[in-house]
Design a protein around this nucleic acid. Structure first.
Length: 246
DNA sequence: AACAACCACAACCGCTTCACA
DNA sequence: TTGTGAAGCGGTTGTGGTTGT
């Protein structure tokens, strides 16, 4: 078996599942030195793991207050509604679920909830979707997410940041202006299987109460939008809604 | 019992964005 | 203003357990 260039360059890095003793080392290291500087963790802690791997392991598994196990019905319901609203923005959704990580939410969606959305389920032979064979190919910004009317981001990148960004134009919206194939759904080119917005800042344009409605958090008795959203604002993020409410 | 198929989740990968020199 | 490393993100793959034949 030929070794890849990466393996030659970093032959010492271990991959695969973490062992309990490795967890212990990482946990002790972070407790002593704090989070951050992940690139140096391997050499300073003695772990034969890459910084990325250490960071992920800490973030998704070892960090205090991480909740493991079954999702409650409330959590599940919130994921569904948030996903409907935000699309595959797992970190944002996870931010609403104390103790849950983006990876966990993402996995839960893909393995449990996605099944309930058959029309959006990816097919292996669907040329519009990303498969193992086209993984390296940069995804078109117009690629559809599964089963959602969502502000899908383009491949990679942190999406919250984009919302705060100064980008004003959106190639997707610009391009749709010239679409003339479907008057009823001007934002939904015919070859896209589901309707969604590909423009992050669309969210602030949402009426707050519409947002509440989508999330089902309004009882009608709240005195303000902030009160209404309060139960969903437990986490540290969701800057979109928060900023919109302020 | 042995094997295959399926499922759930952990981990990896490639990319973008940010912070800072 | 630009370059670079670190961090964060979502998509995808790998692995181990479970179920069916």
């Amino acid at each position: 078996m030929e070794r890849t260039e990466r393996e030659v360059l970093k032959p010492q890095l271990k991959k695969g599942l973490w062992k309990p003793e490795e967890d212990l080392i990482l946990k002790k290291y972070v407790e002593t030195h704090g989070e951050g500087n992940w690139a140096t963790v391997s050499e300073r802690s003695g772990l034969m793991r890459g910084g990325k791997s250490c960071r992920l392991r800490w973030k998704n598994y070892l960090r205090p207050n991480i909740k493991h196990g079954m999702m409650s019905e409330a959590e599940e319901d919130l994921i569904i509604r948030m996903h409907k609203l935000l699309g595959n923005r797992w970190s944002l959704i996870a931010g609403r679920l104390p103790g849950r990580t983006d990876n966990e939410v993402k996995n839960y969606w893909n393995t449990h909830l996605n099944k309930r959305c058959p029309q959006g389920k990816r097919k292996k032979d669907d040329s519009n979707t990303t498969t193992s064979t086209n993984k390296k190919v940069r995804r078109s910004p117009h690629s559809r997410p599964i089963c959602s009317a969502s502000p899908k981001n383009t491949a990679g990148g942190s999406n919250e940041r984009k919302e705060e960004g100064s980008r004003v134009t959106n190639p997707w919206l610009e391009e749709t202006k010239s679409f003339d194939h479907d008057a009823e759904y001007p934002l939904s080119p015919a070859n896209y299987t589901t309707f969604f917005y590909d423009y992050e800042p669309f969210i602030p344009l949402l009426d707050s109460f519409a947002l509440c409605e989508a999330l089902g958090c309004c009882s009608g008795e709240e005195t303000s939008q902030a009160d209404c959203m309060q139960p969903l604002m437990a986490g540290p993020t969701l800057s979109v809604q928060e900023s919109h409410l302020n």
